[in-house]
């Protein structure tokens, strides 16, 4: 069984806000080297790895995101005050008091200009307190991931954006016997609306595309009810903000899960734009499905997941690729 603690921890610790996926790109390319041989980085920052099989039954594209949301410095004041703009879906109200990490290693703490109790806070009110002279306009930061594991539960700020890449990296080493030509795409700028991924496969066609991501899981109470559970198995996606999965593709994945006795859940995530959705509707269109790993709290400065879901997602992908 895959060492999910090590793999996910590595992905989580790597730096990479959208457009600045430096650390995570290095982690993916290094991790792929031992599993699938070479891979390419295109000029948009996507990582692409291809595995071909003589007499393949068809071509499959597997996509997961590289990046995570982050902050960019737009103005530096004296005394170590940096004004920032969000890169991707970060909510100002979740950031006050949060520790952030800059690409160069500097640590900052997010603060608000005035008492925000009861009032709306937005980025105009926020600043990052950093040691004076450590950051410049254009520098980027992420919420410090603070990865930690406790048995089968893994904690980190960026799991919603990194769990998919961890699973795809693991899969790259376990494709023996897969009858398809498989292309792995680790996409840049996914968290800002899935901008860059599709550029990596412009002009190509695939018989199937699977988009691997995460979905908000089983909160407990109030309006946040939902039936997707951490530990309940991979979630076969029916819909996201950019994608409605066609019934025959859902049936393919459900069939794969059933035939191997893999627990699975069905889910929708109306708020997230995926590379899969963008791929489905650009150029001549592609048949796209999605599998999501349940993550508790997909927005905000901390999240957790269950390693069994990573393992079962890997098994479901292998099963689907053998169908």
């Amino acid at each position: 069984m895959t060492d999910w603690n090590r793999l996910t921890g590595g992905a989580s610790a790597a730096f990479g806000p959208a457009g600045f996926e430096t650390g995570i790109r290095r982690w993916v390319t290094d991790s792929l080297a031992s599993r699938i041989g070479g891979c390419d980085v295109d000029r948009n920052g996507n990582v692409i790895a291809r595995r071909s099989t003589p007499g393949a039954k068809g071509r499959v594209l597997l996509v997961a995101g590289l990046d995570e949301p982050g902050l960019m410095v737009t103005h530096v004041e004296e005394n170590g005050v940096a004004r920032v703009a969000p890169i991707g879906p970060l909510n100002a109200k979740h950031l006050v008091g949060v520790r952030v990490r800059f690409e160069g290693g500097a640590i900052g703490v997010v603060d608000a200009e005035h008492d925000i109790d009861g009032g709306a806070v937005d980025f105009a009110h926020l600043f990052v307190a950093v040691p004076a002279g450590t950051v410049r306009v254009g520098d980027t930061a992420v919420v410090d991931p603070q990865f930690e594991s406790a048995g089968q539960i893994l904690y980190a700020a960026n799991l919603p954006w990194r769990a998919g890449a961890a699973v795809l990296v693991a899969l790259a080493g376990e494709l023996a016997g897969c009858p398809y030509d498989v292309t792995f795409l680790f996409s840049a700028q996914r968290s800002v609306g899935a901008r860059a991924g599709r550029l990596a496969v412009f002009g190509e066609t695939f018989d199937r595309v699977l988009d691997i991501g995460t979905v908000a899981a089983a909160p407990a109470a109030g309006k946040r009810k939902g039936s997707v559970r951490p530990g309940g198995g991979p979630v076969i996606r029916a819909l996201d903000h950019s994608l409605i999965v066609r019934p025959e593709i859902k049936d393919w994945l459900i069939g794969a899960a059933r035939s191997r006795g893999i627990p699975y859940q069905m889910g929708v995530k109306p708020d997230e734009t995926s590379d899969g959705g963008i791929l489905a509707m650009t150029e001549g269109g592609l048949p796209v499905g999605g599998i999501d790993i349940p993550v508790y709290r997909t927005c905000g400065p901390m999240s957790y997941l269950h390693t069994s879901d990573l393992e079962q997602t890997l098994l479901l992908l292998k099963a689907a690729l053998e169908e």
Partner: peptide, 8 residues
């Protein structure tokens, strides 16, 4: 910048 393969 998002046209075709991406334009610098």
């Amino acid at each position: 910048h998002l046209v075709r393969r991406g334009i610098a």
